[in-house]
Structures are given as structure tokens and as C-alpha cells.
């Protein structure tokens, strides 16, 4: 059984459709990256998964329980941080944990709290008031409260925000460790580098639609060599690219970048020359995952993948 399953999930607010027919599945033991620029619908999707927002259409099930018809059972499977870990700043870290442990209905509360304190390494300051914490310390406490109920699915929204390099390193180690104990982890981020290092699979979301879902290794393998084309003027060339639905990035007034293999680039150049477009140079470039992400989510690229 999948840890998380979204089927045909749509959310409309007023007349605006925020999320379009989203489908995704996360399996146990998998670390799943949910990638997209700001405003692409990541947080709305997460809020629907944890029952803060009702989907207009479609179903969401967690460990086989429907989030709407079996809300309590579904939520019992989840540990989560939605956006920033907003905790009660006038309480100590420990009191915050007691607060959330009571709501999670844990049988052996005290022991479990000690366990998670150990896991995220916050023993040093857990008895201080949260208002004295740095953002990184809050993130750790946020993670601790998410782990309290022994979740089967961990949903984390931008979890490394505010963590220092050492903190990020510890965090990755912890996530990999949790995944090895068969916990499914769902991580949203707008930083590809973060996802690249932690996740098994990644979905890229843009304007409320999943535009690609694949394993991180295949994403890395796809680092097809792109080409930079220098032209006298890019206006005509870019409109041709748009017509032919070829994704590209405008680097500057004279440079366009396309993601095509060699034969197709030759074909393109031949076509551009036949249209009397002056080409200064064509250079192969080594593309990073970051570039690919930019191409996939750029507005100029037209439709990327059906």
C-alpha cells in the first residue's frame, strides 16, 4: 500500500483553479521531492494532504485512509511541518512537545519525547523558551514535533530553511535514516540542489500542474548537452522556437540556449539560416540539473512534456 496517494486532485478558490488534476504516489521508505518555484501550488497541495484545505475534486489517501472520510486515522499516520514551524514562543521547547504529544495521543509520552529530543539533537536548549531560538533551532524542534507520533509519512515544507551547513548535513542523515526504517518522506522545496542530494524521486510542479515526475538518477542522466546559439538579433529566432514549441532560455540580447541533441540542433540551424537569420556561433554547453529545472519551469519554454 502506498504511503500517500493523490488522485485527480483539483482545488478552485473562487473561479481560479490553483491545482489542476494532480496525481501522485509516494511509497513507504521513499524520499519524495516536490519541487517548484514560489507560487506554483506546493503549499496548497501540502495543506490539502494534511486536511487544512478541502480539495474541490479528487481524493487523497494516507496509508489507505481517506483524509476526508477517515480524517483521524489518516492524520495519525502523518508528521508534518507546514511552511515555517510556528510553535508557541512563550512555552519552552519541551512544553511545546508535551502539547503536541497530547494531541497525537501517544501512550508513553515522556519516553517518546526524550527519544525525539535525542533524534534531532536539541537536548541542550529544549528547556529554554522558544522565543530565544534561532530559525535553525526552531526547524529542529519542528521536526521533533513532527516525529512525535511515530508517523509513517513525514510531510516537510522547505525543511532546511534557516539551517546552517552542519544542520543541513545532520538533517539529510536523519532523513535517510528515517527512510531506511520504512518511513515515507515528502519534501517540498524550491531548491533543486537540496532535493538532488536527498530524494529518490522528484515531481516538478508549475502553476498547479505536475510537469514531470521521475527518479533523481534519471533526471541526472538526462543532463543532455544543450547548445548556446549566438545571433545578431534573437527576436525572430525566438518566435520561430515558440512556433515549433522548442523550449529555450533567453540568456541575453544575442544569446539563446536550447536543450536539443546534435542532429536536431543541426536541423534547427539549417532552418534558421534558410530564414536569413545571422548566426554568430553555436556552442555545446554542459548543463546542470539547476539549468534543467530553470528550463522546465520557465515561462518562455512553452509546453515541455505532455
Amino acid at each position: 500500500m502506498s504511503a500517500l496517494k493523490l488522485q485527480n486532485v483539483t482545488k478552485k478558490i473562487g473561479t481560479k483553479t490553483i491545482i489542476h488534476q494532480l496525481d501522485l504516489t509516494v511509497n513507504a521508505g521513499e524520499v519524495y521531492g516536490f519541487l517548484g518555484p514560489n507560487g506554483s501550488g506546493k503549499t496548497t497541495t501540502i495543506r490539502m494532504m494534511v486536511g487544512l484545505i478541502k480539495p474541490t475534486n479528487g481524493t487523497i489517501s494516507i496509508g489507505g485512509y481517506d483524509i476526508r472520510s477517515e480524517r483521524a486515522k489518516a492524520l495519525a499516520q502523518i508528521g508534518t511541518i507546514v511552511e515555517n514551524p510556528e510553535l508557541y514562543s512563550y512555552l519552552t521547547g519541551r512544553k511545546n512537545l508535551i502539547h503536541f504529544a497530547r494531541l497525537a495521543g501517544i501512550s508513553n509520552m515522556k519516553a517518546r519525547i526524550e527519544e525525539v529530543i535525542e533524534m534531532v539533537d536539541i537536548k541542550e536548549y529544549v528547556d529554554d523558551k522558544v522565543k530565544t531560538y534561532s530559525l535553525g533551532m526552531r526547524q529542529r524542534l519542528g521536526l521533533a514535533q513532527a516525529l512525535l507520533g511515530n508517523p509513517k509519512l513525514l510531510i516537510l515544507d522547505e525543511p532546511t530553511n534557516g539551517l546552517d551547513p552542519e544542520g543541513i548535513h545532520d538533517f539529510r542523515k536523519l532523513i535517510r535514516h528515517l527512510a531506511s526504517t520504512d518511513i515515507a518522506v515528502f519534501i517540498s522545496s524550491h531548491l533543486l540542489s537540496e532535493i538532488e542530494l536527498m530524494c529518490d524521486r522528484v515531481a516538478i510542479i508549475k502553476s498547479g500542474k505536475v510537469i514531470t515526475e521521475q527518479s533523481v538518477t534519471s533526471l541526472i542522466e538526462q543532463k543532455t548537452s544543450g547548445y548556446q546559439i549566438q545571433l545578431k538579433d534573437t527576436t525572430l529566432a525566438s518566435s520561430i522556437l515558440k512556433d515549433q514549441k522548442i523550449p529555450y532560455i533567453q540568456i541575453d540580447q544575442q544569446t539563446l540556449q536550447v536543450q536539443l541533441d546534435e542532429p536536431r540542433v543541426q536541423e534547427l540551424i539549417g532552418f534558421l539560416v534558410s530564414q536569413n537569420i545571422m548566426i554568430h556561433s553555436v556552442q555545446p554547453i554542459q548543463e546542470t540539473l539547476e539549468d534543467q529545472f530553470l528550463i522546465l519551469t520557465s515561462d518562455k519554454g512553452g509546453v515541455i512534456r505532455a
Binding site: 487544512l52 480524517r71 507546514v82 495521543g105
Partner: peptide
């Protein structure tokens, strides 16, 4: 947000 994502109605 953290209050309402618990298995308590």
C-alpha cells in the same frame, strides 16, 4: 496549522 493536523477532530 500544527494544531489542526492532529488526529483530534
Amino acid at each position: 496549522k500544527l494544531l489542526l493536523v492532529r488526529p483530534v477532530s
